[in-house]
Simulated scan of single mutants.
Amino acid sequence: MKKLLLTAALALGLAHGAQAQEFPEGPVTIVVPYSPSGNTDVFMRHLAPSLEEKWGQPVVVDNRPGGGSMVGTAYVSQAKPDGQTLLLTSSAFVTAPALQASLPFDPRADLMPIANPGFVSFLLVVNGESGYETLEEFIADSKESPKFGATAGLGTTTHFAMEQFLAESGANVDVVHFKGGGPAVVSILSREADIYGSSVSSAGEHIKTGAVKPLAIIGDDRIPLLPDVPSTKELGFDGLNIKQWIGLFAPAGTDPAIIEKVNADVNAAIQNADFIETVTPLDWTLNTSSVEGFTDKVNTELDIWKQLAIDRGLAQ
Rank of each mutant, 00 (worst) to 15 (best):
L282Y: 14
R191Y: 03
K243A: 12
P36I: 01
H159S: 03
K297M: 10
E292S: 09
G68L: 12
L302F: 05
P183H: 00
G38S: 01
K147E: 08
R191G: 09
N272P: 04
S69R: 04
D265V: 01
G197Q: 11
V229Q: 09
F294I: 11
A150C: 05
S69M: 10
T156H: 11
L99K: 07
T209M: 05
D221W: 01
L302T: 06
P183G: 01
W284V: 08
G68A: 06
V200E: 09
P104A: 06
M112W: 09
V298A: 13
L47W: 08
L111N: 00
Y75S: 03
S169F: 10
Q307W: 00
W305S: 01
K143F: 03
M162V: 08
D110S: 06
S231E: 14
G210Q: 07
V126D: 01
E205R: 12
P24G: 14
K2Y: 10
Q78T: 07
L10P: 00
P49Y: 07
P33T: 01
I217C: 02
S187Q: 04
H206V: 06
L88F: 15
A167F: 12
A211F: 13
A18F: 12
Y196C: 10
G155V: 05
G239H: 10
V186C: 02
L225Q: 09
T157L: 14
V173S: 14
S37V: 12
S201T: 10
G128C: 02
S231H: 10
V173M: 11
S202W: 13
Q244P: 04
I30Y: 14
D265T: 00
L235S: 09
V61R: 08
G17I: 14
G128L: 03
Y132C: 01
G293S: 12
V120C: 03
R222G: 05
L6Y: 06
L240H: 10
G293W: 15
E133T: 04
D174V: 09
Q19I: 08
K261C: 02
V298H: 10
V28K: 15
V266T: 08
S190E: 09
L282Q: 15
G149D: 06
L111F: 03
A161E: 07
Q100T: 05
T89Q: 01
P117D: 06
Q307G: 00
V125T: 06
G239W: 02
L86K: 13
H159Q: 12
I223H: 00
G17Y: 11
G38W: 03
I188T: 06
I223F: 09
G210A: 08
A8I: 14
G293R: 14
D296F: 11
V61E: 09
N241M: 07
A96M: 08
G67D: 10
W284N: 09
